[in-house]
């Protein structure tokens, strides 16, 4: 029988290993330096927007990140929400997803009645080795979603290697133990090349509020202006009227295609 102290020590070791997570740091550094933030697999991410009005942007950002962690073996996405909150947010729309570069066939939508069941579902889905990312859309604050619970989810993400994204809105939400906390806001688009009055490619103003220092050290960039193009996520170009209005490619993020880029420049 272990003593109480021995148990606590053992737990601390586990927690430390999960927190430092050296492999995580390596991948994360490389992706951030490329100018487009990409959350690594095996992390708990909190993605929050100022209000529900910008809910499309939060989902868009989470999907972009989720798309980056899809691999051949881990191909599925799980979107979970509370059925009582669907009226306000709306569900992910299949045709919109395919235009966004996500194959709707990969995604499963869960409409769940109770918060407790939602947490169970997040954990269960993250533990499945075929699930690349779990996106949990939680509109209102819930008492059950406390710090302990998010700590548990963070550990689960590290253990399983799936990325978990919690979409939250407003500033009265609970504290969370997410590895990374992203603030995402919409940014005005540049318009289309041949129709300046039409909305162009989606742009996001992204701020990494938490986790940047731990994983990248002081002084690393934590703000990005990014744009979603048909080739995937790109650093925002200053030149107005940039891109063709094309659907993003589906599946794993492709290598940048030189010939396409030259046509758009």
């Amino acid at each position: 029988m272990k003593t109480r102290q021995a148990l606590i020590d053992e737990l601390k070791t586990v927690l430390r290993a999960a927190d430092t997570h050296p492999a995580l740091r390596e991948t994360f550094e490389g992706q951030i330096k490329a100018g487009t933030p990409q959350a690594p697999a095996g992390t708990l991410n909190e993605v929050w927007g100022d209000n529900l009005r910008s809910g499309g942007v939060s989902l868009g950002f989470a999907l972009m990140q989720a798309r980056g962690v899809i691999t051949g073996r881990r191909g599925a996405l799980v979107y979970l929400c509370l059925s009582g909150e669907v009226r306000e947010t709306g569900l992910p729309y299949g045709p919109g997803l395919s235009g966004f570069g996500i194959d709707p066939g990969l995604m499963v939508v869960g409409r769940i009645q109770k918060t407790g069941d939602l947490l169970w579902a997040i954990e269960e889905a993250a533990a499945c080795r075929a699930v690349a990312a779990v996106i949990a859309d939680i509109v209102r604050p819930h008492r059950e979603l406390d710090f302990t619970v998010s700590r548990r989810l963070a550990m689960r993400a590290v253990a399983s290697g799936a990325a978990i994204f919690m979409l939250r809105y407003g500033s009265d939400r609970e504290a969370s133990a997410a590895h990374l906390r992203w603030h995402v806001a919409p940014a005005p688009s540049a318009g289309l090349a041949f129709d300046a009055k039409a909305p162009g490619a989606a742009r996001f103003a992204v701020r990494l509020e938490k986790g940047g220092r731990r994983f990248l050290g002081d002084g690393a960039a934590d703000r990005w202006q990014v744009e979603w193009t048909h080739d995937g996520l790109a650093a925002q170009k200053d030149s107005a009227a940039g891109h063709r209005d094309e659907a993003a490619l589906s599946g794993i993020v492709p290598a940048a295609l030189g010939d396409r880029l030259s046509q758009t420049a």
């Binding site: 709306g90 569900l91 992910p92 045709p95 235009g99 659907a247």
Partner: peptide, 13 residues
């Protein structure tokens, strides 16, 4: 689903 059509990411119920 035709990815060429412009469709929203979320559709209200």
């Amino acid at each position: 689903f035709d990815p060429g059509r412009k469709r929203p990411l979320r559709l209200l119920p």
